[in-house]
Design a protein around this nucleic acid. Structure first.
Length: 422
RNA sequence: GGAGAUGUCGCAUAGUGGCCUAGUGCGCCCGCCUGCUAAGCGGGUUGAGGUUGAUACCUCUCGCGGGUUCAAAUCCCGCCAUCUCCGCCA
């Protein structure tokens, strides 16, 4: 959530941010009146409660008839206090529920509009010209089957559609990418983490995944636990309810975890292969820093994502995601999209978001400063999403005979070329 | 899964219905004193919310949430966490 004081001090700023997202600014007026109602209820309750405490102190000292009179008076007041407290709690809950639906203030620098209104910031490398090379590119699934790397048929048999087995060199490829990513992360000063992938509702809610994205989340009703869609969730909740020493910022983590996504709104999209699946593993970067430093840190995270794709020798472009496509928590988001030859277009392989203090307010993560405590800023970015990276490596590195040439960074793990097994 | 114990301010502890506006010690911060340091002395030291131009005042906060009561750190119920024992298990 954002700073509630903005509702009183500068509501126009919120309205403008809503407009940039293509969302309704009406919620701001609803929030302002809910906030007024809430504050009025608090004042009523606190006045009654102060009176109750004052009388209570007298009851303790009084004797005989005086005590009986006071008891009668205070008994009456007790009902008033109880009612006022309930009214205050309800007004607070009403405000809170609405307030949590309000997304973070989209940055004025984010392009206005929806999904298709992104701006291309940079394009790196050149997609191969397969026509000039004299063969039609195979897609990643065909290559994966030739190499004995991917088995989606048995994935579906065992777990259903959008599940897969990585086999042989496919499994080794994920392990190599994981190891390489961890090595890079340590070089860059991030702390590797292996977090739990089942979390409590508060962790899921705090990161903003139970809002409009709730349908995309797996929930275990028997245990009241959620399967995370990204290790951003446990990494953000890691410091929840803590007040951090400013000297320890920035805190930079790289979490490796499975990611579970129901893909509820994606029926019929990317149904072939392992491009869009219900489960994959990912190394995710997560940073806690100050609000002032968050903008530079955002660029730094993007830099690391680019360095990673450079190391994998993949052609890619970087886009500035439009305000309407930011999700609840981010004020700005950069996506890296790798070239996918079989589709003839760039597809998202990583994403870097600046969530400023939005998640930190919900999760109650603060830093002790000179003027009291203030919420920290949180940022997240993909280092390596395994399945999509494997798609890009296979398709971009393929040769006419179905073998795949690997980038130099992976040679120590798997050699230079993956050969078809049949 | 079963049985039991525990949860108070950064840490350690006191507090078994009103005198708690949560005491004390340690640590930490500021000041005084002092060749320096230490000791000593004085003051401060959870966090959130509300009223307010400001100063200031008020409310909440004893793991979390309910309940009983005129009044709850204290009594009752539920949950969470930790520890011990039994069972099961990678």
């Amino acid at each position: 959530m954002i700073d509630a004081r903005l509702l009183r001090d500068d509501p126009d700023q919120i309205r403008e941010a809503q407009v940039r997202r293509g969302a309704s600014p009406e919620i701001v007026d609803q929030l302002i009146s809910a906030d007024e109602a809430r504050r009025a209820a608090i004042a009523t309750y606190e006045t009654a409660r102060a009176e109750q405490k004052r009388l209570g102190a007298q009851v303790a000292k009084a004797q005989g008839d005086e005590k009986q009179a006071l008891l009668a008076q205070t008994k009456e007041l007790s009902a008033t206090v109880k009612g006022a407290e309930a009214a205050q709690a309800e007004a607070g809950a009403t405000f809170d529920e609405l307030f949590r639906q309000l997304p973070n203030l989209a940055s004025p620098e984010a392009p206005a509009g929806g999904e298709d209104d992104f701006v291309v910031l940079d394009t790196v490398g050149t997609p191969r010209d397969f026509a000039a090379e004299g063969f039609a590119p195979r897609d990643h699934l065909e290559l994966g089957e030739l190499l004995g790397a991917i088995d989606v048929e048995r994935g579906a048999k065992v777990s259903g559609s959008r599940f897969y087995f990585l086999t042989g060199v496919g499994a080794r490829l994920e392990l190599a990418l994981t190891q390489l990513a961890a090595t890079k992360a340590v070089e860059w000063g991030l702390t590797p983490m292996i977090p739990p992938s089942l979390v409590r509702p508060s962790a899921m809610e705090g990161t903003g995944f139970l809002g409009q994205a709730a349908d995309d989340v797996y929930y275990l009703e028997k245990d009241d636990l959620y399967l995370v869609g990204t290790s951003e969730v446990p990494l953000a909740a890691y410091h929840s309810d803590e007040i951090l020493d400013p000297a320890t910022l920035p805190r930079r983590y790289a979490g490796f975890s499975p990611c579970f996504r129901r893909e509820a709104g994606s029926h019929g999209k990317d149904t072939r292969g392992i491009f869009r699946v219900h489960w994959f593993d990912k190394v995710e970067m997560f940073v806690y820093t100050t609000l002032e430093d968050s903008y530079a840190e955002h660029e730094r995270i993007l830099g690391w994502e680019r360095a990673w794709l450079d190391a994998l020798e993949l052609p890619y472009r970087v886009i500035d995601v439009a305000a309407g496509d930011l999700g609840l928590s981010a004020i700005r988001k950069f996506d890296c999209e790798a070239w996918v030859p079989s589709q003839g277009r760039y597809r998202e392989v990583s994403s870097a978001s600046n969530c400023t203090s939005f998640q930190a307010r919900r999760l109650d993560i603060r830093v002790r400063g000179e003027a009291g405590t203030t919420p920290v800023a949180t940022l997240n970015g993909t280092l390596c999403a395994m399945t999509r990276t494997i798609v890009a490596l296979l398709e971009n590195g393929q040769q006419a005979d179905g073998s795949v040439r690997l980038p130099a960074a992976l040679h120590p793990f798997l050699g230079e070329v993956l050969e078809p097994i049949a």
